[in-house]
């Protein structure tokens, strides 16, 4: 079975500065890969290239999936659409009939912990947490087989972050989609991902690759924290995150 997402020798530059070169990556079916690295290492650019938002300057990207969805760092809800229509946006863009998309959106909203009374509200009437839930619901509504997550929970509080991470892990298990997660948060990566790629800020190469034991959702909190603690003592991680300071 071929991997749904393959990067071969992909390179990209921004304003004359090379972000990464000869970057190779393969995300297998049903697998979630986390890209972690300091700011400026090009993780978001890699995600945008994979999602077709950016064209790579060099190399080849092969994407073999039917439906993709992206969860952005900020929820990016359409301000003039109600919560229900925002969640149904991806379905509407695909031309799904109104009745069906509203039914799917309403079901997902409730699954995400939103209330029925919130559905006719506009984004300005919702709290930040509710908007982020809506962003996740909008992505899951299209029933993606490839999900891109661009630091999706970095602006949420600890409790909500855990809740949304658990929802996402459960959705990945029941729906079986592949995922590419970009994050700064090592704990989040260990909870959600099957594999962890650490990017170097110096040359945009993969500095380390770790396959995590067990499946997401089955790892105990103790195991997650022990793993994060072990890595935080690892010289590869230490050097990478101090590289950012050196560059300044």
């Amino acid at each position: 079975m071929t991997a749904p997402l393959v990067f071969s020798r992909v390179g990209h530059a921004f304003l004359g500065r090379t972000l990464f070169e000869d970057f190779d990556l393969a995300v297998e079916a049903g697998e979630t890969v986390a890209l972690i690295g300091p700011s400026g290492s090009g993780k978001t650019t890699i995600l945008q290239i994979a999602a077709g938002i950016l064209e790579p300057a060099k190399g080849r990207v092969l994407g073999a999936w039917r439906r993709q969805a992206v969860v952005f760092q900020e929820p990016r809800l359409v301000p003039w659409m109600t919560l229900l229509d925002n969640i149904a946006y991806g379905l509407a863009a695909r031309g799904e009939p109104r009745a069906r998309r509203r039914e799917v959106a309403a079901r997902l909203a409730l699954e995400m912990g939103l209330e029925e009374a919130d559905l006719p509200k506009y984004p300005t009437e919702l709290s930040g947490g509710m908007r982020q839930r809506a962003g996740v619901a909008r992505a899951l509504a299209v029933d993606p087989d490839m999900l891109f997550l661009d630091e999706p929970f970095s602006a949420t509080d600890v409790g909500l972050r855990r809740h949304l991470q658990n929802l996402l892990i459960a959705a990945a298990r029941t729906r079986g989609f592949s995922g590419l997660l970009v994050t700064h948060d090592l704990t989040e990566a260990v909870r959600i991902a099957d594999r962890l790629l650490v990017l170097s800020a110096l040359d945009g190469r993969i500095a380390a690759c770790h396959t995590l034991p067990g499946r997401p959702g089955e790892r105990s909190e103790r195991m997650v924290f022990e793993q994060v603690e072990a890595w935080s003592r690892d010289p590869v991680f230490g050097e990478l995150f101090s590289a950012r300071e050196r560059r300044r």
Partner: peptide, 9 residues
Amino acid sequence: VMAQSFGAS
């Protein structure tokens, strides 16, 4: 960009 990522025409 959000709309584009969902394949909106």
